[in-house]
């Protein structure tokens, strides 16, 4: 079996481990810096600027020039970037033009809301994908495999907002079991919060499940054909133990890694799904920012999402090392 990213993620002694973690943290810091530069650059190609968004395109040119001057939009880009990143680092993220609120608390609030559906959809996806993938791998090339693989293929082929529409039609409109839109804060009413988050999570989870089923199936089939599995069987262990204790323990690492990488995909998808379900989380906020050209808010939401994705990947890498006994971390 291939270890992720070759040799650099192995560390056998505590010393090399600390170096490894230090290197990773340094590279995370560097990447975050690059992310901020890219985010800032992309939003600065926008035709029109913050002043124009505040005052409207029809506004008086002199007033516009005055506002530009007072917002510092006439400064060189590098100075503007410095001011922006300085604010980000010191916790002053500026104000949203649309919501007329401080961006920092606004985002913190929405990240918490989205965390609910990210966790719920990941749970749904893993709970379905692991048994389905194992089932397909154990019965490789039989009807069970075809069924599971076809289900998975269907899952990756349908846009998740299409799943969303179908779920709204079925569970909200026809059956009337679950609410089709809105967000309730878990602290206010936990049951209502889960009920509101359920359909969007399911819509996200179905696509994710399909990816993870395919991954589980291929990892499990390659592991099941390895020597140690034959040894385990020869020892007289039950098939149940061989599959769930021995094979799955080895397959879970790569599956978790892929699940972690899919967090990026999830954060792309929540933009569509939260908008569809009117679930006022991070995705919805990002969409509102993009739609209304709320430049300060676009910069902050895009930066936060990219940072969350990157940090998740780092955590997954470290967890992977913790789960897989062949990679030793202190």
């Amino acid at each position: 079996m291939q270890l992720r990213r070759g040799g650099n993620s192995r560390c056998f002694t505590p010393g090399t481990c600390m170096t490894y973690i230090a290197n990773r943290l340094l590279s995370v810091a560097l990447t975050l810096l690059l992310i901020s530069v890219i985010t800032f650059m992309v939003t600065n190609i926008l035709p029109g600027d913050v002043a124009m968004v505040i005052m409207g395109t029809q506004s008086n040119p002199e007033a516009l020039a005055g506002l530009r001057e007072s917002l510092g939009l006439n400064d060189p880009l590098i100075v503007q970037y410095g001011r922006w990143i300085g604010g980000m680092l010191t916790g002053d993220w500026g104000n949203s033009l649309v919501f007329k609120e401080a961006i920092g608390p606004l985002i913190a609030n929405k990240v918490a809301a989205s965390a609910l559906i990210v966790v719920m959809s990941m749970t749904i996806a893993l709970a379905a994908a692991i048994p389905l993938g194992v089932w397909a791998a154990v019965h490789r090339d039989k009807w069970q495999d075809t069924t599971a693989s076809t289900t998975a293929l269907m899952g990756v082929s349908l846009p998740d907002f299409f799943w969303g529409i179908m779920l709204i039609l079925l569970f909200a409109r026809y059956l009337g079991w679950l609410p089709s839109s809105g967000f309730v804060h878990p602290a206010d009413d936990f049951i209502a919060a889960v009920r509101h988050a359920f359909l969007p999570s399911l819509a996200l989870g179905l696509g994710l499940m399909a990816h993870l089923t395919r991954m589980t199936r291929s990892t499990m089939s390659s592991i099941l054909s390895q020597e140690f599995i034959r040894v385990a069987r020869a020892k007289g262990l039950t098939e149940h133990t061989v599959i769930w204790r021995y094979a799955l323990a080895n397959a879970i690492g790569p599956v978790m890694t892929v699940a972690g990488l899919q967090v990026g995909y999830l954060f792309g998808s929540i933009i569509v799904i939260e908008s569809l379900f009117n679930f006022t989380g991070m995705g919805w906020l990002t969409y509102q920012a993009l739609l209304n050209r709320d430049i300060p808010l676009i910069q902050s939401t895009v930066f936060v999402i990219a940072a969350v994705v990157m940090i998740t990947n780092l955590v997954v890498d470290l967890l992977y090392a913790a789960i897989d006994p062949r990679i030793k971390l202190p």
Partner: peptide, 17 residues
Amino acid sequence: TLLAFPALLLALTISAV
């Protein structure tokens, strides 16, 4: 670095910009 941006987010941002 670019891979840290979800593809759909990147596409949406570029399109909006």
